[in-house]
Design a protein around this nucleic acid. Structure first.
Lengths: 336, 336
DNA sequence: CTGTTAGCGCTTTCAC
DNA sequence: GTGAAAGCGCTAACAG
């Protein structure tokens, strides 16, 4: 619409002066009177700076990108909000893509084309290889809730701790036949939660039994099937630790479909305290992970990398903290 | 990184020629040999066009914005996906903001600053007044799932139809004491679903009773409270039609907390078939609205407006269609 | 305290 | 078929 030049003309000053007041130039040696005239002109013409021009000039875009697998996956919403808040706080916008329809190529291109200055990858579906490839471009990016060997720019949670919390809670309730439906064991979260499960068992002197471990995907369907297998065991578990909320939902359904009841027959606990956990029947006991903070910290670190130009020699970050949200899906086992 | 100019130098041609091949200029009068040389140079230098520059030059940004209230609200994820898909299809990117931390001002500014070419407003939290204000700027925007008097750029679903479907289903099951927990009655969706409820009742010759209507917000808490009030009635309803999924979740919880059972004591049906509806206990009967298509159509129309420069004289669009997703939260009433 | 100048990287007439 | 030149709107030295 109105350009800086036009404003300048109306205010009878040079465009550069207008630029200075618009940007609140710290060297604000501008006569109060002139400033007022300019401000008036801006107001009158309804002037708004053109970002493309500014970005071109300054070689920046003040935009960050974020790739997630799917907007409907509730696990990501907290991360997005954290990232969004921090980005806004630092004057950046966040462009969130789901991978639903885009290939990776499309997800990277905004980065390569300077549309975004950095990329948050919160997505287990992208191949390690492709990420290593991206590294070669030297463009700033960061992995969120994910670990890839050879990449130091990542922010993860303490999944071992969270899993240990869950497992120990089950043991404290009196269970010792505790199954684990894990995430994919080629993912950092899946692996670490599995490890936390084992450590929790060990620290409480409960035997580990491989038959009680079902490797699953992070989906409702996969959780459902895994739970079925567990229920088919000669001695089914009395409690289940689900590696994430989707699995947990599927597992609960499988239990109900067998005519069993939670927690009377089987206790269940899952990672991720999504908003509807408390509305489920029974209300779900969960482990809350610091998803929001992960998003926040990821953006913080990403911006550091962007500004440091070099960066990326630092190690990854682990956001500590995981809390047991006690509700009603866990209770002592039937015969204890 | 590498600029067009540098590529040109390497390929020993003029920058303009490079530009033409990069853009696949339809007037592709370019010798195959030259083109090859240029392509090689691009490859070798890993050249990617700078979008800020291109956008500045062409006075566009190929970006659309979308405001939603909250990423964790599952109602919006389908709309986002639809919008995203269509945007990608037409060569646009979608910048999705939640209103969580930003004021309206911040949400509009990308539009005014030319960062985005158009805005999808999928948000009941924004004041009508502010939207009317936005209209004055003549910038392209469109309302999604929302109606504001005086604004013709909108895409809505057939909420009356959806509500009628739900109500009639309940009646067909044998209910006649059917309550409705409505959304806010100053919103289009709330109002239309209420109307659909009344029409459904009327068409099936069931009496309408104002005491069975609770106006609520679209939140779990509000649904919970409304349901409590309904249960406190001298003659509580035997079935409930919840105006959206959040309300439905809250209402279900209230029913359970009273020691009542769904659907044995009370049937319940809600609008919006979110992914976890089938995993609930009991699996929820819902009305599926064409959310994905609304997102898609909204983008389509928005782009039309953007390209038509004028536009906006057309009327709003209603995406027809609503389906009953029959599961187990509805059944015949106790004594029928 | 304000104006001049140059240029960010790209596209687009218009020439040749 | 390719090159020259101008300019999108803004900012950042540098003068004055």
């Amino acid at each position: 619409m109105a350009t800086l030049k036009e404003v300048a003309k109306l205010a009878k000053v040079d465009p550069s002066v207008v630029s200075r007041v618009v940007n609140n130039d710290p060297a604000l040696n501008i006569k109060t009177e002139t400033r007022k005239r300019i401000l008036d002109a801006i107001e009158k013409m309804n002037y708004r700076p053109n970002l493309s021009a500014r970005n071109l000039k300054k070689g920046q875009s003040k935009m960050l990108g974020m790739i997630i697998p799917d907007f409907s996956n509730p696990v990501y919403s907290s991360m997005i909000h954290g990232a969004e808040d921090q980005a806004a706080h630092e004057g950046y916008n966040l462009l969130v893509y789901s991978m639903k329809q885009k290939g990776l190529e499309k997800s990277y291109s905004p980065l390569l084309e300077g549309q975004i200055e950095g990329l948050l990858i919160a997505n287990s579906e992208i191949d390690n290889k492709e990420i290593l490839e991206l590294k070669k471009t030297k463009k700033p990016f960061i992995l969120v809730n994910r670990f890839v060997p050879g990449i130091d720019n990542y922010v993860v949670a303490n999944d071992v701790l969270g899993a240990k919390l869950a497992t120990k809670h089950l043991i404290d309730q009196g269970h010792h036949l505790i199954a684990h439906i894990s995430g994919p064991l080629f993912t950092g979260t899946g692996l670490n939660r599995f490890q936390g499960y084992r450590e929790g068992l060990q620290e409480k002197n409960v035997d580990f039994s491989p038959v009680y471990v079902q490797e699953s995907k992070y989906t409702v369907e996969s959780g459902y099937e895994s739970m079925q297998r567990l229920l088919d065991l000669p001695t089914p578990p009395t409690a289940v630790f689900a590696s994430n909320i989707m699995i947990c939902l599927g597992a609960m359904k499988a239990i109900h479909d067998r005519g069993l009841s939670v927690p009377k027959d089987i206790s269940i606990i899952g990672v991720h305290d999504v908003f509807f956990a408390s509305t489920l029947q029974p209300p779900l006991t969960t482990i809350e992970m610091p998803l929001y903070d992960m998003g926040k910290e990821a953006v913080k670190k990403l911006i550091t990398i962007i500004q440091g130009d070099e960066g990326e020699n630092e190690r990854g970050i682990m956001i500590d903290g995981a809390s047991l949200i006690l509700r009603s899906s866990t209770s002592p086992p039937p015969f204890s």
